[in-house]
Design a protein around this nucleic acid. Structure first.
Lengths: 194, 194, 194, 194
DNA sequence: CTCTAATCGAGACGGTACGTCGCGTCTTACG
DNA sequence: CGTAAGACGCGACGTACCGTCTCGATTAGAG
């Protein structure tokens, strides 16, 4: 008997029910985050919105944060695919533009994650972005410690994006890309003697 | 000469008991924040450490966050006195150095506020710093919206400071000041055509 | 020196301020009891209504109940003066009539004490009435233990009065007196063989 | 034959846990009321004695009083089954005797409810007994308003029972039944001209 | 007609109980 | 016999009120 032999392997049996439940929970959380700060979203609210039993939540995610992480990871993964090559190619302007366009495209979702939510969630997103950014081997000037560079780059970018997304009359993606480039990418690319 | 000529002005009677309680609470919170994340510090723990009745806490502060805000405000106020003149004089290098030296001087307190604590607290500190920075009339290039400039400057600086303070073998204040200047102050001072 | 030598004697020095405070408290309590159950009347509400400092309350009465007791005692004392002679003269009908007329005369006060108030207050009133009734040497048939007779008589009378006072369209005092006589006084006067 | 044919009626799923918790709470309250006045019994004390979480109390009863009411209702229900037929048959003596014997049989419980407890609880019990008595169609003389008759009968009986139960050397049930009959039942049965 | 001390208002304080909320676990009853 | 529903223990929250206390500021009444 091996009722749970799959727990040590990756995703061997993507049981349709499991997929459905997880998806319903993700959708429900996104809905709710669009209405209220993440910290005020309770597990009960998520499960109710998802039409799922309360305890079922914990069968899929140990905490609310874990559910959020899954959503954020997917988003960040999609983003990195777009901008990592540009960053490696040192084309900071193009990278910034790709970034802002991507965010603009899924404006509502990003708004939910960055604006409405509290900082706890933002910290989580940042941490995942940092981890992801660390894997991509971005070049770094010698005066800037690598770990600080990554943290700074991610946190600063998120700050700007958040400012952008909570604007009443949002600016053009290109204009924001320019700001990002000036404030984040360019300074980090500047050599020591500048 | 009237013995109580101040009774018609603003804070007529600061009642020694109130002062004592508030101070005890502030000290207690700082102690605790040095030991554990702010979010895990309960009101009961604060009042117990302060030797004060539980309900008394709420007579002074509506929430833990409010108590924290008072502490942070005082600290930020002291800091602004130091660096505001340098910022206005456009001497970004000196401002950065004054900043890092100030933080270095009250390293333990700043660590408690920036490193150990969760992001909720950091958000609060940021917000207050932003409000304070807004009053000081820092110059801003035309390509950078004023409100974004302030938010960005404060949040970025805090990120760097946090990175610094959680280092195992912390760097020299001057070195960090250089990084702050390169990553934050200088880019914000750069004109449009650069 | 004998600054408080008067505490063993009766009321040697009825300092005008003391009298005023006590009276204000009594009036305030009666006002409030007319509006809400006694159990919901807080000390703060009493003192506020009386225009008196919070702590001053406790300078005069150890508890709310003590204040109430003083009021009830005075009322019961006045009542006993009226009906005790009639009870001793075995004229139960006249006693009942005197009782209901007395209550009718200070209807509002009695309502406050008996209807609006919770049972805690009623218990207190009963106990005081019992104590007072015990002093008056009412005759009692041999089948009825004296202590039960007193408790029963008082509690039953109060029950009927309470019913009377909370009627929307109250009956005539004489009619109620008849009921009291039939339900309380007469049965208690009946000899064993009846 | 349907195994769970009752699932469509009133209490479809009595969930063993609920039954267990409620019973534990009832038992705990009875224990405590036997030791101290009901008003001094805190919810924390009840739940601790019952071995149940504090908050769980409120999942079952909105207040302490509600828990008490459930206990009292059950007791009164059992009592009414016994004496209602006798009352309707106008056999007041038998009714009184059945009453006192019933109380004697569950002396400890009745003591807890009537003697130790404060008046607030007694008021509650009275009210429930009144409501129950109102359903049983007891006859009433024309000079005695029905509602007063019920209130009076119940309150007076409880007064006598309370006196009985708090006696050090309690009397015989028959003797008390005689008193109850003379003081309560008989007077209420007497016609107008008596 | 002072002077002295009792009384006052104001309200901060420690403490206790309340009732609520949310988490994460664990039992239950049902399909 | 597995799974969804939801009862449960736990623990923090913020509120309310109690009765005590510490302040000065009156103010009554004795000398």
């Amino acid at each position: 008997m091996a009722p749970r032999s799959d727990e040590s392997r990756g995703p061997p049996r993507p049981d349709a029910r499991i997929t459905r439940s997880r998806h319903a929970l993700q959708t429900a959380l996104l809905d709710l985050v669009a209405e209220m700060p993440f910290e005020e979203v309770t597990v009960a609210a998520i499960t109710k919105r998802a039409g799922i039993g309360y305890a079922t939540f914990f069968r899929h995610y140990p905490t609310r944060e874990a559910l959020l992480a899954e959503i954020a990871d997917a988003l960040i993964g999609r983003l990195l695919v777009l901008i990592a090559p540009l960053v490696l190619a040192q084309d900071t302007a193009a990278a910034a533009l790709a970034l802002t366009r991507f965010v603009d495209a899924c404006r509502r979702l990003c708004r939910g994650l960055l604006v409405g939510a509290g900082d706890a969630i933002r910290r989580d997103i940042t941490a995942r972005a940092v981890a992801a950014a660390g894997t991509a081997g971005a070049p770094m000037p010698e005066w800037l410690p690598r770990d600080l560079g990554i943290v700074h780059g991610v946190a600063t970018t998120l700050t700007i994006l958040r400012w952008w997304l909570e604007q009443d009359r949002p600016q053009d993606a290109a204009a924001v890309a320019d700001i990002v480039d000036r404030l984040v990418f360019a300074p980090m690319a500047r050599p020591a003697g500048a």
